[in-house]
Every structure is written in structure tokens, then in C-alpha cells.
Amino acid sequence: MSEKLVVDILTLDAVQCAACQYMLEAVTALPENVRQHIQYKEWNIKGPEGINKFLEYKARVLPTIVINGDIVFESIIPMYEELLDALAARAPDVLKTEIEKVRTTE
């Protein structure tokens, strides 16, 4: 299995906060062939793990999407194509190929 792209979604709590819910859904609703090549996780700030992750990234606001350690979307739910672009810019070749497949079939 090739190396996966790490996508961290920093939230207040995706159950409790609608903005966080749809920031998380931007990632979880990606096509299956793209999701197979990313490792994503919600870090909610209601627990020590989430707080530490927020501090580790020096994040400023919630919700935030971090891709491979880069803070990419802060309090802005990305359009589908924006998210694909941001992933592709940091993706290993195999994921870039899958993202291109998605783009050509839509």
C-alpha cells in the first residue's frame, strides 16, 4: 500500500457544531477512490488529544482542514474542486492519478 496523505480536520465537535459537521463532510464525502489514499481524522477540541493537535499545528480557528501538516482551509468550507486541488498539490503520484480520474469522469 502506498503512503497515504494525512488530512486532519480540527473541530469543536462535528456532532455539536454544524460548521464543523460540514467541514468534516467535505472530506468524508470525497469519492471512494480518493478516500482510499488519504488518512483522515477529526480532532475535536473537547478532549486533550484535539487540544494538543490544535496546538501542534498552531491553528487559529475552528473548523480547520490541515493537509500533510499544512493549514489549508480555515473557517471556509472548500468547494469540491478546491479541496481536490489542495489534495493534488500535496499528493503522492498514485493519489494524483486518482484525482485526475475523478476530474475526467465528472
Binding site: Q21, E25, A26, I77, M79
Partner: peptide
């Protein structure tokens, strides 16, 4: 917009532009 998100899902954030 929150209601539209509930009804349409995250696609609404692409729809408002595209």
C-alpha cells in the same frame, strides 16, 4: 444556509459558486 446544508449536504458549498 445551515438548513440548505442539511438538505443538500456539503455540495451546497460548491453550488453557491459553480
Amino acid at each position: 444556509l445551515t438548513l440548505a446544508s442539511h438538505l443538500r449536504g456539503v455540495k451546497i458549498f460548491t453550488d453557491v459558486v459553480k
